[in-house]
């Protein structure tokens, strides 16, 4: 008998949150030594864009949660459409992020500018990697149950992936909330 293995994604989520937690603490620790520099640098960030992106991710997270609910009721077509909607909303995040990076780089702010911007690029960059991985997962989920498996098996496997993939996507969302608060808001006026 196959044991239910879907909850194992929770272990990955807990670990990933832990490592972001470590990064947040290291950031705050480094900040203690150079508060003025960190605050000044954080004023250069565009807080309204960060806020906008938080709303984008929250909205996409909601659509994915919705997809999960209808998926569990067996309404796979609706789940597929909601996944596509979630992806469409989430793609705005990437556009905004690229604009933001471009705005920073075009005025010569890079990883090497100072300790704050090293963290800015590291935290948002690693988060962006998580985001891109999540978009791939959403794209796969938007295909619906696999046509290459027997129907019953395909459904069961789709539900497992739907649950695991959605959980991962919510993690991408909740990590951004802390990143946004810590990088953009704490130093804001």
């Amino acid at each position: 008998m196959r044991r239910e293995r879907a909850p194992a994604i929770w272990i990955f989520i807990a670990m990933d949150c832990t490592s972001f937690g470590v990064l947040f603490l290291v950031f705050m620790y480094e900040r203690m030594g150079q508060v003025a520099l960190f605050d000044e640098a954080s004023h250069l960030l565009n807080a309204p864009l960060g806020f906008f992106n938080a709303c984008v991710l929250i909205t996409s997270s909601w659509l994915v949660a919705w997809a999960n609910i209808v998926g569990r009721e067996g309404r796979f077509d609706e789940a597929r459409r909601l996944m596509l909607a979630g992806m469409a909303v989430a793609s705005i995040f990437l556009i905004v992020k690229v604009i933001e990076y471009y705005m920073k780089l075009s005025v010569g702010i890079t990883v090497k500018t100072n300790a704050f911007f090293l963290f800015y690029y590291a935290l948002t960059g690693v988060h962006l990697m998580h985001y891109l991985g999540g978009m791939v997962i959403l794209a796969i989920l938007a295909q619906g149950p696999s046509p290459y498996l027997p129907a019953a098996e395909a459904k069961a496997s789709y539900l497992r992936w739907l649950e695991g993939g959605s959980l991962y996507w919510h993690m991408v969302d909740l990590l951004w909330i802390f990143i946004f608060s810590i990088l953009y808001l704490i130093g804001a006026r």
Partner: peptide, 26 residues
């Protein structure tokens, strides 16, 4: 800011992720 960030994450954990379906320790 930090209180609200934590509250938002708690809402995501309980409403979107349905964390009560996960193992208790997690």
């Amino acid at each position: 800011i930090m209180l609200i960030a934590a509250a938002k994450i708690a809402v995501i954990l309980s409403r979107f992720m349905e964390v009560e379906r996960a193992p208790k320790a997690i």
